[in-house]
């Protein structure tokens, strides 16, 4: 048997609206704590080094995804400099609404690391941005930093 008769009039379609009212808190974990505290308190970046794989994770982690070794505490200082690995300009918000001011978003590879960061670019026009462009992070003043990714205002060309 399949469906014998189907609804003919759309206004007859019955529906029930539903929301999923759930709230979470996500703990940053041991590497996240170290990273965000350093950023908040001293405005500096750290990564984590796996000597066996010759990889520098940025942001840091407590384990290497390649050899699975524990690398907690192998923190290394990372310079506030990177290059634009790839980029886009967003004309819509995350929920598909037009943006009044489009935002330039980039993935930035940090110097001397194998990682990087997803963030906005500022103090620049999209037309002037390119893959390979050197940039640096612009931080919020210390009093406004809370220990999160938004402690960085944006990245700007060097």
């Amino acid at each position: 048997m399949a469906l014998i008769e189907r609804l003919q009039n759309r206004p007859d379609a019955t529906y029930w609206p539903g929301k999923i009212p759930m709230t979470y808190i996500y703990t940053a974990g041991r590497a996240g704590e170290a990273f965000f505290k350093k950023l908040r308190d001293s405005g500096k970046f750290i990564g984590a080094r796996c000597e066996d794989c010759d990889l520098t994770y940025f942001p840091p982690r407590i384990f290497c995804e390649c050899c699975f070794n524990r690398i907690e505490g192998n923190w290394v200082n990372v310079k506030n400099r990177g290059v634009v690995h790839t980029l886009t300009i967003c004309h819509e918000t995350y929920d598909d609404k037009p943006k009044e001011t489009p935002s330039i978003v980039a993935f930035i590879r940090f110097e001397d690391t194998d990682g990087g960061m997803f963030h906005r670019l500022g103090d620049v026009d999209y037309e002037d941005c390119y893959i390979g462009m050197p940039v640096e992070a612009v931080l919020k003043p210390k009093t406004q930093r809370k220990g999160g990714i938004l402690d960085i205002k944006h990245f700007r060309p060097l």
Binding site: L87, T88, Y94, D95, I149
Partner: peptide
Amino acid sequence: GDLLTFAADPFAWRPLQESPHAIAAMEMN
């Protein structure tokens, strides 16, 4: 859009509240 945003990392990505299409656009570029 909320659904896809909730698929994003809550530390590195979600606070920026950018469109999930941005990830695809950057990959395309």
